[in-house]
């Protein structure tokens, strides 16, 4: 339990630091969720793009070379 609490507080602290540097500290709750979802979906799309397009393309170029 102690470990879980420690991890939780660690995560909480760094989430707080994340809200500070992205200015989400001072905005309303729904705005914070909005940006978080937006960022997560952006990263997901980026991941998908890399996985489905960029990786095959580079491997194609490398194997051709």
């Amino acid at each position: 339990m102690k470990l879980l609490e420690k991890v939780l507080s660690f995560l909480q602290y760094w989430y707080f630091r994340y809200t500070l540097v992205t200015e989400l500290y001072m905005v309303e709750k729904w705005e914070r969720h909005f940006i978080n979802i937006f960022l997560v979906s952006l990263f997901c799309l980026l991941f998908y793009f890399n996985h489905k397009i960029l990786l095959p393309a580079t491997s194609l170029v490398l194997s051709a070379g």
């Binding site: 540097v21 992205t22 200015e23 989400l24 905005v27 309303e28 705005e31 909005f34 940006i35």
Partner: peptide
């Protein structure tokens, strides 16, 4: 870089709001 990024977020949220 983060300051600029954060400012864009604030502007964006401001327009939506």
């Amino acid at each position: 870089a983060l300051t600029h990024f954060g400012f864009y977020i604030l502007m964006f949220l401001g327009f939506i709001n």
